[in-house]
Amino acid sequence: MSYEPLVRCDGVARTYGTGANAVVALHGATCEIWAGDHTAITGPSGSGKSTLLHLIAGLETPTAGAITWPALGARAALRPGPVALVLQGPSLLPPLDVTENVALPLVLGGVDGDDANERALRALERFDLTDLARKLPEELSGGQAQRVAIARALAQEPRLLLADEPTGQLDHATGAAVVDVLLAAAIELGAALVVSTHDPDVAARFDHVWLATDGRITVLLSPDAPSEGQPCSA
């Protein structure tokens, strides 16, 4: 167990556009994510969930405040590497088959092609997706595609797994199964898991629940937080 958090946000804010067109997607959020944390960020659409997730993933830079990854390293080394991200919506590369899609981040990280393929197949096996190994993304259902995307993230054996609305396009039962897999994999890997969701049932299954409202993040549930309903920065 590291004595430093994986991620530390210190008054992080993100504004899109400038002047009269400026839209503040996220107001100064201060929070930490530690190894083994299972966190759900919940809230309505446009509340800033995805923005916070992208900032944590290092995909975006904050317009105010600072974000660091004390136990993970520099921003440039996060992906591919200790951070894996499951994107909202279709996120498989259309011209690659399922195995190649899963192996891609590994190859991008420098893993040899054959090794990457083996690891990809193992990840697919874990999700019972072996039958789909040679299918193209356009030949998959929405649920299958989402499971492949999660398999791709887990194949990297990340220390921080981020999933943006992983159940958003799935029916209730499939969504629940996907969350089962995510939680089980995070436990198995000892990885921190942060999921954004607007589904209260999904959020209820996580140890930590943050509520996003109009770009402000508050803690709804935390086993070690001072009290519920406090801002995330509290």
Partner: peptide
């Protein structure tokens, strides 16, 4: 997507 996955 490739960049999100970490492509340089």
């Amino acid at each position: 997507i490739a960049i999100a996955l970490g492509a340089k």
